[in-house]
Design a protein around this nucleic acid. Structure first.
Lengths: 195, 195
DNA sequence: GCATCTCGGCTAATGCCATTAGCTTTACGG
DNA sequence: CCGTAAAGCTAATGGCATTAGCCGAGATGC
């Protein structure tokens, strides 16, 4: 019986591959059995490399957060003002459509009381930072900047989620609706910066 | 061995009680075993009244959609314009905070290809109608009305979701941020009606 | 009042999953 | 070479959903 060459990293990557093949709910439905099968290995073998399913999920979530941050960073680099806002919005949506399960995995922020989630929380802080940077041109007061980011995230997150889960029934083109949302955000942020 | 007096309806109500006691994820985590235990009955007994866990979940989702619609209807009756928009937004948020699991259950729209989901889809259409009515004052073209509802739902849904799942880390007061979001929506919808 | 038939509950059994325990073999360091 | 730690394995436990088949309760028909 030759060794399979497992490792925490390899397992995480397999798990990512699995959720990338599945639909939006694939992260929630991730199972150790599936990861083991993909390696041609028995399920208990995985415990030599990860502590539990929850543990593996944390790794997957962490990778997802990082990928998300990279995507947003790439989308907004060298842009400012309304331009940056539009790119950020489109970058978020594109990421969610490209790898829906990772998008959802990246949103489960992690419990601040859970030490094991520390890395995720740290990585999420970077996402936050990229978003903040994209909005730098607006001259918000510190408190208003928080409102602005919340408003922005909420709007895009809600749209993307409803889109992913098929919440939009009507046949109207989604791109047009998304544009309307983004335009509203651009104006709304300007307005928010004014007070 | 006296009868337990189970029924589809009774089981659905028990399930609702269970998810109301749990957190936001309680709908996803609903189990037949828990419902059976709450009735002091063995799990297989439930199959005399529901076809499966998925079946029971559908009932729960249906009830949740209806409760949501009632809440929105109550919030907006006799209001119009910006007043209606604000009430609708606050009604949605209040419902989500009061019964988070029901809120989430009500959002899983149901598969249009799945005949068993027909009732849910029908009930969701009523929710949609209440929302549409609340926006009646705005004079949208039919297509723009769809955009408007999508934008509105997205924004509120996103905010509520992030709030429920603890996605907002910073200590800034959530009510203030929510107000900012609603104000932006009110202005944005007016703008949207203009073209 | 009694025979009957249906239906609502039960137990037993299967299968899938996570997880733990303990065995065995591999591969590497000495 | 040899010892040992780590990497896989099988076996076992416990939770869950689901199916099959039993059995008594209670309504129904005479």
């Amino acid at each position: 019986m030759p060794r399979a060459g497992l490792s925490r990293k390899a397992l995480t990557e397999t798990a990512l591959a699995i959720i990338d093949e599945g639909g939006p709910r694939a992260f929630d439905n991730l199972t150790l059995a599936a990861v083991a099968a993909k390696h041609g290995v028995s399920t208990p073998s995985l415990y030599k490399h990860v502590g539990s399913l929850a543990d593996l999920r944390r790794d997957v979530a962490l990778e997802s957060v990082r990928a998300f941050t990279r995507a947003l960073s790439r989308a907004t680099v060298g842009r400012a003002g309304a331009d940056a806002v539009v790119s950020l919005a489109e970058g978020m949506r594109a990421f969610a459509e490209g790898t829906p399960a990772r998008y959802l995995a990246a949103q489960h922020a992690g419990d601040p009381d859970e030490p094991a989630d520390a890395a995720i929380i740290e990585a999420s802080a970077e996402t936050f930072e990229v978003t903040t940077s994209a909005l730098r041109g607006y001259d918000f007061t510190p408190d208003r900047a928080i409102d602005a980011i919340r408003v922005f995230r909420s709007a895009i997150h809600g749209f993307v989620l409803l889109e992913l889960e098929g919440g939009f029934g009507l046949p109207r083109d989604l791109d047009i609706s998304f544009d309307a949302l983004v335009i509203m955000l651009v104006r709304g942020l300007e307005e928010l910066a004014r007070d």
